[in-house]
Amino acid sequence: KMTIRVKGKELARRIAKEMKDRNLKVEIHEHGDEVILEIE
């Protein structure tokens, strides 16, 4: 399990899509400006 902190929703969406393309499970937690992606 891996956690990534990202500034900006646009970048977070791009990373999430990339991870889904690799068949990984992604959970997205938004905290205002910061987005936390949990990847399994």
Rank of each mutant, 00 (worst) to 15 (best):
A16R: 03
D33W: 06
H29K: 11
R5I: 13
K7F: 12
K9C: 15
L24R: 05
D21T: 10
E40I: 13
A12Y: 02
I39V: 10
L37Y: 02
G32E: 09
R14V: 07
R22T: 03
T3D: 01
E27C: 13
V26L: 05
H31A: 11
M19W: 09
K20Y: 09
R13Q: 12
R14C: 14
I39T: 02
V26F: 06
M2P: 02
K17D: 07
L24N: 03
H31L: 13
I28L: 09
I15A: 01
I4G: 01
R5G: 02
H31G: 05
I4V: 06
A12F: 03
H29P: 00
M2V: 13
R13C: 15
V26D: 00
I4Q: 02
V6Y: 04
E10I: 08
I15L: 12
E18G: 08
H31W: 13
I39L: 04
N23G: 15
L11V: 07
E38H: 12
L37H: 00
L37C: 01
L11M: 08
V6W: 03
K7C: 14
R22V: 03
V6N: 02
R5Y: 10
V26G: 01
L11G: 01
D21W: 10
K9A: 10
K7Q: 10
I36D: 03
H31D: 14
V6G: 02
N23S: 07
E27D: 08
N23M: 07
K25S: 09
E10F: 10
I28Y: 07
L11R: 08
E34D: 11
D33Y: 05
E18A: 15
E30S: 07
M19C: 08
L37V: 06
K17G: 05
E27N: 11
V26C: 02
V35R: 02
K7L: 11
R22Y: 06
R5S: 05
A12E: 00
E40A: 10
K9Y: 11
L37Q: 01
I39A: 03
R22Q: 07
T3P: 01
I39D: 00
A16C: 12
E18T: 13
D33L: 06
K7H: 11
K1W: 12
K1Y: 10
G8N: 15
E27Y: 14
E38Q: 09
D21R: 15
E40H: 11
T3N: 04
D33T: 07
A16E: 06
I28M: 12
N23R: 08
A16V: 11
E38I: 15
R13P: 00
E27Q: 12
I28Q: 04
K7M: 10
I4H: 02
V35G: 02
R5H: 08
R22W: 08
G8T: 13
E38P: 01
I36G: 00
L37I: 13
E27S: 13
R14H: 07
K17W: 05
R13K: 12
I15P: 00
I15D: 00
H31S: 11
A12Q: 01
K20R: 15
V26W: 02
L37K: 01
G32W: 05
I39W: 09
E10H: 10
L11D: 04
H29D: 03
I15T: 02
V26M: 03
I15N: 01
V35L: 09
E18V: 14
R14L: 10
R13G: 06
I39H: 01
L24M: 11
H31R: 11
E40N: 11
G8P: 08
E34Q: 08
K7R: 13
R14A: 09
E18D: 07
N23P: 00
I36V: 10
E40C: 12
I15S: 00
T3R: 13
E27I: 14
I39E: 00
K25Q: 09
R13D: 09
E40T: 15
A16P: 00
M19R: 02
L11N: 05
A16D: 00
R5M: 08
I36R: 04
E40P: 04
K7A: 07
M19Q: 02
G32Y: 06
H29R: 12
V26I: 06
I28A: 04
L24P: 00
T3W: 14
G8R: 07
E18Q: 13
E10N: 09
I36Y: 11
G32H: 04
G8C: 15
R5F: 10
I15R: 03
M2A: 05
E30I: 14
V6S: 02
V26N: 00
A12P: 00
T3K: 10
L11W: 05
L37N: 00
R5C: 14
L11P: 02
D21E: 13
E18F: 15
H29A: 06
E10L: 11
K17H: 06
E38W: 12
M2C: 14
G32C: 10
M2F: 13
G32T: 04
L24Y: 14
I39K: 00
E10S: 10
T3H: 07
H31V: 14
K9W: 15
E27F: 14
R5Q: 04
A16T: 04
G8Q: 07
E30F: 14
E40V: 12
K20P: 00
R13A: 13
M19P: 00
M2Q: 07
K25E: 06
K9N: 06
E34V: 14
T3S: 08
A12N: 00
H29Q: 08
I4E: 01
I36C: 11
G32D: 09
M2I: 14
E18P: 00
N23H: 10
D33P: 04
V26S: 01
V26K: 01
I28F: 08
G8V: 07
K9M: 15
T3I: 15
R22L: 09
E30N: 06
R14M: 09
N23V: 03
T3G: 02
V35F: 15
